[in-house]
Design a protein around this nucleic acid. Structure first.
Lengths: 202, 202, 202, 202
DNA sequence: GATGAATGAGCCTTCATTCAT
DNA sequence: TATGAATGAAGGCTCATTCAT
């Protein structure tokens, strides 16, 4: 038999996935979970904190996965960085993909149902980080005489954002893990091609 | 001095852009506009109708722009269709781009702040139409002996959706019209490259 | 072509008959009548006054019919009063019946749809008057040595009230005038029998 | 000191009796009861449900009393039915009378102040049932060679309706129970006389 | 830990009526 | 006479949160 906390979390997830953070009613959640409001507030001190509990680990975990790949990449020699950029980009996507599928619901909550919480700009923040980092990367390789094409910041943002979104859409559309893997490959190929083209446009 | 209706519309747009349809409070809107609730309901029958007023023309207009290009394309001979596909895809994006910039706020409302209204699935519907149409296209060229690669429906959806989103992101991030034009070109190039690669993967 | 006032009155009657005084919306009435609120308030200074206009004449008229019969009765000699009591009771009902059918809608408004207006106790007041008068009658005939049975005031009220109500039900149930006449006779017979029995009970 | 629910119910009854269901304001009720709107909605889901709570048992109870007498009557042999019709009619009225006086206010609410609720046609429904049943009765005795007079449906309705109303008027006019009993007898005698007369009219 | 009644501000909407034009 | 935009109180109801037990 589940304990109070578990029941709350289970039901809350359903409700948030169904109605979004703003649309979900705390009273409905506790009622459906068969507990009382008082009990609930023993565990969390607000509706937002409840949402946070459902989502925090996955949000941080995903961010970590992303940063790990990046750190690994930046610990390489400049030479290697240049050569392995796409390898790492692929690796990054794959790791994030793997991570996402460990708790797709949480990601769904963050990406589609977080309106009104501090996660409402999660994707945006991830993208900002990615862009910051890629600027780092440009700086580094420029030191070594390479002349990467400068995308406008907007296009940078849009494309990076598109990549992440593509990844997340698999979850949003509840594509089963096994099918998703094949999709991932197609998507990655698609984006790599795009990058390559754009980088040789100038 | 603005009239009541103008004040309501101006403030409403701000509020919806700030808090979304659900989060925006009618009372706050009328208060900020310096009018009374009664005055408001002289103009619109409901909060949703107010949203609709801010958004309807743009929604319909954009859909029309999209459909016009498509109809034009399908009125070509099969031969021309095959040859001009990317030309038309570019033309379509450009026309939508032009249209979007006639009322960027409206599009923003539709795409990001329409949760709880009948527009909440606007992008999704646009994507569905595009996919339906592209299936039409495949059928046509198949009649002529071509063998286009079959993307999984999910990838199809994700990529088409990505294209539209990219376009809309320009507005979402308030890229000024002149800069946006350059961005468009890069984005289009990016996606064309992606398409071409994917179509020759098999 | 009808004038403004006529249109208001026509529509108002419909609305009051449909939704009752409280339920009817003045805005709906003026809208349906194709006039403006301002125009309306040129004629009447409130919703209640509008109701009054639809109903006043009939209310007063009915009261008058009733009183006329009574006055005529009381102008008879005591002897005649005693003998003709039931004749007059019948005559009274018939006259009221006739009157009601000159404007059934107005009566309907008074009896069923006047909640919230000064007419909401119309029937009650009519009954009170009838009882007062019948007490007069008792007093008179008592002076002449008759010993009428004393009904409790409550029974008096209830039965008198029942008579009026029966009459009005014909209108309420929209019994056509010609059928109603036959009904009236049955009802009157019914009540006379009742009266006679009760008066000989003691 | 009363609890919240009691206070709400007490005040609500007063308000409904004073203004009717439609005219009564929930806010006024809770204010007068010294509680908050929120507190109220902890007990009932709506204004109608509150009304229902005040009235439901009595409505069902009265219907049951009525039906019980009828069922008992129809379980008699045809012979007995014919002989005991008036006995049972009296019994029925007495039982209803008894029942009504267990909660006169509730009946008052149902009969006079229920406009806008599902009880607004309670009396009408009771009358319909009575008429249906009396048609049953006619059928039965016709099998035995009797030829009851056919009243027009309207008169039937009006008289049956008058009987119930008379009964209820005792409550409406707050006649104390002990006096009411005497009234009942007079009223019943009155109606029996009426019936007998009408049945021998043809 | 848990209860659940109570809070009270807030929601969207409707209303009869007024008044400057 | 007539307009119709504006008033603003009031309507029923929902909400996240608190707190005495």
């Amino acid at each position: 038999m589940e304990n109070t906390l578990q029941k709350i979390l289970t039901v809350a997830k359903e409700e948030f996935l169904d109605k979004g953070f703003r649309g979900a009613s705390l009273r409905a959640i506790v009622k459906k979970a068969g507990v009382t409001t008082g009990a609930f507030y023993g565990y969390y001190k607000s509706k937002e904190e409840l949402f946070d509990a459902l989502v925090k680990d996955s949000a941080e975990g995903l961010m970590k996965v992303y940063l790990d790949v990046f750190n690994e990449f930046f610990s390489l020699s400049k030479e290697e960085q240049k050569n392995k950029m796409f390898t790492f980009s692929k690796k990054g996507m794959e790791k994030m993909f793997d991570y996402i599928y460990t708790n797709p619901d949480a990601l769904l909550l963050i990406l589609k149902y977080s309106d009104g919480t501090k996660y409402e700009n999660f994707l945006h923040e991830l993208v900002e980080k990615e862009i910051e980092s890629s600027h780092e990367f440009y700086k580094v390789i420029r030191e070594f005489g390479y002349q990467p094409i400068e995308l406008t910041p907007q296009v940078e943002h849009i494309i990076v954002s598109g990549m992440f979104t593509s990844l997340f859409e698999l979850v949003i559309h509840k594509v089963p893990r096994d099918q998703a893997e094949e999709c991932m490959k197609q998507i990655h190929a698609f984006f790599v091609a795009g990058w390559e083209r754009i980088m040789t446009m100038a």
